Amino acid sequence: MLTGTRVIDLSHVISNGMITHPWLQRPVVNEFVTRDQSAAFSAAGVTFQLEVISMPGSTGTYLDAPFQFHVDGPDVSAVPLARLFDIPIVVVRVPDGRAIGAGPIRAAGDLRGAAVLVHTGHSRFWGEGAFFRDSPYLTADAVAELVSAEPLVVGIDSQNIDDGTDKAKPAQHRLLGADIALLECLNRLHEVPDRGAWLRVLPTPVRGAGSFPVRPVAVIR
C-alpha cells in the first residue's frame, strides 16, 4: 500500500446468531472440524478449525445484483468487477428525515460513473432494534434522479434502500433494472469525504444469488 493511503472498512461484522433482519433466519456459524478434532490427525502442536456457515444473502452489509429483481440480469457472480472496483465515491449526506427525495441527489452534482453512498447516520443503531424502525429510504423521485444521473453503484447506511411498506420497491426495482448495483447496511460513512475516495468491492462469485454479504472499502489516497 502506498504511504498515506487510508482504507475505511464500510461493512458490519457478521456473527453467529446476530439479528440482521427481524423476519429472516439469523446467521449460523458452526464448527465443522474443531481444533480438538484436528489435533487427532495433525502433527504435534498443529491444529485448525473449519466452519459451516448458513445465512440469508441479505446479511450484514450486502450487495444487491440486478438478478435479485430481474431474472435476466447478472447475479452476484456476474456483476462486472469494473463496475465495482476503484469507482469514485460521492457521499450524499441526509442527516434528517426518513424519506429521501430528489433534492439531495440533485445537489450532489455530477454522478455519472460514480458510487453514490447515502449517509443518513442510521448505522449507529446497528445491533439494536432501532435499526429496523424508521429506517431512511429513497423515494421514487430520488430513484428517478439517480437513474438519470447514471451512477454505477448506489448505497445507503440504513436497513433498506426502499420503504418496507412500498410494494413497488422503486429503488431496488428501477436501479437494479438500470444495471446499478446496490449496497445496503453500509457503515462508517461519516469517515468518508464527500468526494475524493474510491470504492472497492470484490463480491464472492456465488452463482444464482441476487444478494450476498460483501466487504466494501473506501480508499483515500
Score class of each variant (00 low, 15 high):
L202H: 15
G208Y: 13
G101H: 02
V214K: 03
R207G: 03
G164V: 03
G208H: 07
V154F: 10
R35I: 05
H12Q: 12
V153M: 09
W23I: 15
S15H: 11
L183H: 02
A115K: 04
E31L: 11
A108K: 04
H119L: 08
V143R: 01
I100M: 00
R174V: 09
I8A: 01
A82F: 08
G73H: 01
A40L: 12
N187A: 14
H70C: 02
D75A: 00
S42W: 09
R124Q: 11
V153F: 10
F85W: 14
H12W: 10
G97M: 03
H12M: 06
D166I: 05
E184L: 02
V118G: 00
F69S: 13
V29T: 01
V94N: 00
G177C: 05
A108W: 07
T120Q: 06
V52S: 04
R124P: 02
L84K: 06
N160Q: 15
P88F: 11
G210D: 15
V28H: 08
Y137T: 03
I8S: 02
G73T: 05
G4Q: 07
D179W: 12
A65E: 12
L111W: 06
H173W: 12
V214C: 01
H119Y: 12
V71C: 07
A114L: 03
I14R: 06
R221S: 08
A82R: 08
Y137P: 04
G129K: 10
L81R: 14
R195Y: 08
P136K: 13
R112M: 01
F48D: 07
D36L: 09
D134N: 15
Q25Y: 09
A178I: 14
Q159M: 11
V91C: 05
P170C: 11
A140D: 14
G164Q: 06
F67T: 02
G129V: 06
V143C: 02
Q37N: 02
V29W: 11
A197N: 12
L84S: 01
T165P: 01
P88N: 10
N187W: 13
V192N: 03
M55T: 08
P88T: 09
D163A: 09
R207Q: 09
P205I: 09
V91N: 05
D166E: 13
E51F: 14
G196V: 06
A102H: 14
G113V: 14
A140P: 01
W126H: 07
R26H: 08
V79R: 14
V206D: 00
T47M: 03
P27F: 11
A178Y: 13
P193F: 07
S58I: 09
Q159I: 05
P88H: 10
Y62N: 01
W23G: 02
A144V: 09
W23N: 13
A108N: 04
L176M: 10
G127I: 08
D141P: 01
S38W: 07
P88A: 12
F212G: 00
R207M: 05
A181T: 15
D72F: 11
